[in-house]
Write a protein that binds this DNA or RNA. Structure first.
Length: 118
DNA sequence: GTCTTGACGTTTA
DNA sequence: CTAAACGCCAAGA
């Protein structure tokens, strides 16, 4: 069976990422690696970032809730405005200092745990 | 068509 | 402990 390439029509890593991101509860955050690991490719964290970039055209994708493993808003500059990500997080009660989420470990929402083991 | 870059993370030296 | 390389796969030039 031929492996389907990543396209808009085919269900792929991107769509799966979008689904997981939508499942992130308000006031919580997750990481690219957590999503990638949940999907089975722990080292495909980069693709998660690409998926977020594609999510721009889709509504309901809280990309601002996805940060890197240290809780740093690495992709904030990719938003409509460089401050939008930080602003949105503050709206949900998440404090961001110097592009870093305060108490990130405490706000961390891991799909591998929350969606599987409880 | 090939080559480089990219919202990252893990592994190895 | 720190530093560097690899892996992942897609899109842009």
């Amino acid at each position: 069976m031929k492996t389907a390439p990543l396209t808009e029509k085919n269900k792929d890593f991107f769509d799966l990422v979008h689904e997981v991101v939508k499942l992130i509860p308000k006031g919580r955050v997750t990481t690219y690696g957590a999503i990638a690991s949940y999907l089975g490719s722990a080292r495909s964290s980069r693709m998660v970032g690409w998926a977020m970039n594609a999510s721009h055209k889709i509504e309901g994708i809280p990309a601002h809730r996805v940060v890197n493993r240290i809780g740093l808003l690495t992709g904030k500059m990719n938003f409509e405005t460089p401050t939008l990500m930080e602003e949105r997080l503050k709206q949900e009660g998440i404090h961001v200092i110097n592009d870093q989420i305060e108490g990130f470990k405490q706000l961390f929402w891991d799909p591998t745990i929350e969606l599987n083991i409880h």
